[in-house]
Structures are given as structure tokens and as C-alpha cells.
Amino acid sequence: MKTTKFVMTAALAATLFFAGCKPKDADIQAAVQAKEASGISVAVTKGDVTLSGEVADEAAKLKAEEVAKNEKGVKSVINNIKIKVEAPVVISEDATLQKNVVDATKDFPTVKTEVKDGVVTLTGEIQKASLITLMQHLSALKPKKIDNKLTIK
């Protein structure tokens, strides 16, 4: 009877001892989260790490996985990180662009414009102080490119 009790106590003590050595899920979570780039979420269940969120490319996704794998106490890593898909660049149709360029450059009489395949070509001359304003107006029109050949005075 006494022996049984001793064995049970010893077993309990051993369990507590080993459990005490093993990092807790919450600690692993905090440690991994701190090392991951922003935009990545870390979840931990019994040492199994699940990564989610969005990154720019495959390399960043693999790096995030590597970071988690190297953390003490991590048993496995499930990498559910998605690679961000950028929306395509929107470029205005020439007819729309042409009309909007006329509107945008109305107050810059010394500037001549030409629109072709989304490219706005600027010729003529402009005061240096007005150039930023002109460029700001034109950039809002979703051109493919602004080809600035203006002479700056």
C-alpha cells in the first residue's frame, strides 16, 4: 500500500516536473508572434503552430515558417499564410484620359499635351513652382505614364 502511494506520488511529481520544463502554448505563441512580421497571426495548440495572414511573396511565407520551426517547444508548423494578390493597375481609356487631361491642364496654358495608349506626353514650358501641382493633377487621372518633356523655367 505504502509502495503504491510512493510510486503514485513519484509519478505525479515527474509529470509536474516535465510539464514544467515544456514551454506552454501561450508562451510559444507570444515568442513566435514577436518574431514574425506584421500581418501574420500565430496560433498554438499543444505545441502545434498554425500560421495565417498575408505576406508579399513566397520567400516571406517560407521565412515565417522557418521562424516558427526554430522556436523551442514547437512540434509542427501548419503554414496557412496567403500570398497577397495585388489588384491590377487601372489605366484610363484614351478617350476618358484625353478629356480629363484637357480639364487638368486648362490652367497651364504654356503646357501642351498629347495622349496615346495611356501615355501623357507634356511639352512646352512651365514655372518650377507650378510643376508639382500639374503633376498631381495628371497623376490622379490614372495614366499609364507621364512623359514629362517640359522645359522648367
Binding site: 518650377k128 510643376l131 503633376m135 497623376s139 490622379a140 490614372k142 495614366p143 499609364k144 505614364k145 507621364i146 512623359d147 514629362n148 517640359l150 522648367i152
Partner: peptide, 13 residues
Amino acid sequence: PNFASGDLVLNVN
């Protein structure tokens, strides 16, 4: 300088 390269479209509203 003077936005001469034509390699950036900066559209910040």
C-alpha cells in the same frame, strides 16, 4: 528631380 524619368505614377488622394 522635376519628374523627368516618367517611371512613377504617384496617385495619393
